[in-house]
Amino acid sequence: MTTPKFAQIKQFIVDKIKNGSWQEDQRVPSENELSSQFSVSRMTARRALSELTDAGILTRSQGLGTFVASFKSQSSLLEIKNIADEVKERNGRYSCSVHILESINAIAPIAIALGVEIDSVVYRSVLVHNENEKPLQVEERFVNPELAKDYLQQDFTLLTPHEYLSNVAPLTQARHTVEAIMPNNEMCQWLNLYNEEPCLQVIRRTWSSKGIVSFARLVSPGSKYRLGGHLTFKK
């Protein structure tokens, strides 16, 4: 089966970025240049650039052109850290319990978050991360099977989803929303909360160079967890 021309252009651009030929913030060929190089219409070239822009691989600036995105942008707000490492850095004992590991059909919000078709099969996991045998965080994660096909075969008591996904689909971009919530009964059970207590919820979507990898909801008791950040400004 012949690969569509727009997909060939996307792969060409991704390969240039992955092998270091094109660096962050470097201008990439224009629609006209790509249409000439690949002997396609401008519309086809535009589709390739638009899809890579939507995936966070490229950024477009009105009147200036299209550029390789900064793949370190996520650290300007929240550093993506492995929770097992966080616990160990505090000299704590990390452990994890797996409550759900399954394939499901994606309802509309999950499909939109992962950039897949509604009702297509995605993977879902629900884990509780513990520090010194006490629940610290519930992680509910939805994963694109195309980018992590062996996700359901992993033993997440031995490695975290973050560690596995970082190996098979290295992180290039992440987006977060953070809010305070009141946990429902199921969340209270998972976190061993016996009194109503506000929790910190982080919604996180992560990308690799090939697209959206996962959509996760991380919930921690407000009394046990906090977020910090470090800002670095470019000169």
Rank of each mutant, 00 (worst) to 15 (best):
N195W: 14
V122T: 01
L191Y: 08
D15P: 05
Q37G: 03
C199Q: 00
V143Q: 01
S73F: 11
T177Q: 07
C96F: 01
A48W: 00
N19L: 04
K16W: 07
V28G: 06
L193M: 06
A69K: 03
E179D: 09
E186R: 13
G65R: 00
F67S: 03
M43N: 14
R175M: 09
I100V: 15
G228D: 09
V122E: 02
N82E: 08
S35G: 01
A48C: 06
L152T: 00
K210D: 15
N184M: 03
F215C: 13
I181A: 06
Q23V: 11
A69F: 00
V68S: 03
L200E: 05
D119N: 14
V213G: 05
L58N: 02
H129K: 03
Q189P: 06
T3S: 08
G222D: 01
Q74I: 09
A7Q: 13
N167F: 13
Y164F: 10
M187L: 15
A148P: 04
E131C: 13
V219W: 05
V213K: 00
L52W: 07
P183S: 08
A216L: 03
L191N: 06
L218K: 10
R217H: 14
N32D: 15
L64R: 13
Q137I: 08
E196T: 11
M182N: 13
S41L: 00
F215V: 07
E186W: 11
T232P: 08
G56I: 03
D150M: 00
E102A: 04
V126G: 00
T177C: 06
I112S: 15
R42D: 10
T206P: 08
V202D: 04
F38P: 09
A69Y: 04
M43L: 12
T177D: 05
K149W: 04
R93G: 00
P198L: 02
S103T: 12
E196V: 09
R226H: 14
N184F: 04
P221R: 06
F6R: 14
A111Y: 07
E140L: 00
I107A: 13
Y94M: 02
V202E: 03
G65W: 07
E86V: 14
T66V: 08
Q137M: 02
L218N: 12
F12R: 02
H176M: 04
S21F: 15
T66M: 09
T172Q: 10
N32I: 13
P4G: 07
E179K: 13
I110W: 05
S76H: 14
A84C: 01
I118H: 15
V143M: 04
N195D: 13
Q153A: 14
R27K: 15
A7E: 15
Q11C: 07
I80G: 06
R27I: 10
Q74Y: 15
E24Y: 11
T44G: 07
D150K: 11
A174L: 00
L136F: 06
H162T: 14
S61L: 12
N19P: 07
P4H: 00
L147K: 06
E131H: 09
E86N: 10
M43P: 09
N130T: 10
R205I: 15
I181V: 12
Q154S: 08
V28H: 07
V121F: 05
Q23G: 09
E31F: 02
V213P: 04
I9A: 05
V68G: 07
E33C: 03
V126H: 08
Q189Y: 11
G56R: 07
T66H: 02
F67W: 02
A174C: 03
Q173S: 11
E79Q: 14
P170T: 04
Q173P: 09
N19W: 08
